[in-house]
């Protein structure tokens, strides 16, 4: 029996970067909000792992950063999606819809067969 945690971890690995893109795609965000949002959804266990991922997404041209004064103090670095990031997200959304439907369909048919 594979533990639940191992299944979740493996699934999370494949989709995390697209979830980050999706969060940023809904409007510019800064690191802490992205990290908190992902953690609250159970998609990120260690918030610190977000930063290597954000750095990689920026290097790959999927997100870009800008600086803005914050009302509370020091300027913050905000992340926004580039055109390439939007494209990636759109492709993933399409693939995910088909993929998750196929998995659900398979699981349901197997479950029905067992009953």
């Amino acid at each position: 029996m594979i533990p639940n945690d191992a299944i979740t971890t493996n699934l999370r690995k494949g989709v995390l970067e697209y979830c980050v893109l999706a969060m940023i795609g809904s409007g510019e965000m800064y690191g802490l909000d992205i990290a908190n949002g992902l953690q609250q959804r159970g998609l990120l266990t260690s918030e610190g792992t977000l930063y290597p991922l954000l750095a990689r997404l920026r290097r790959n041209g999927q997100v870009e950063t800008s600086w803005r004064e914050s009302s509370q103090g020091a300027p913050r670095r905000y992340y926004t999606l580039t055109a390439g990031g939007h494209d990636s997200l759109a492709v993933f959304s399409s693939v995910w819809a088909t993929f998750s439907a196929s998995v659900s369909d398979t699981l349901n048919s197997t479950t029905r067969g067992q009953q």
């Binding site: 610190g48 790959n60 041209g61 580039t82 390439g84 492709v91």
Partner: peptide
């Protein structure tokens, strides 16, 4: 944990641009 986050491959995904 954070250093482990570096292990993800760097290959560009679909529709990605060149590095900026």
């Amino acid at each position: 944990d954070i250093a482990t986050g570096l292990a993800t491959p760097d290959a560009p995904g679909p529709g990605q641009r060149q590095p900026i």
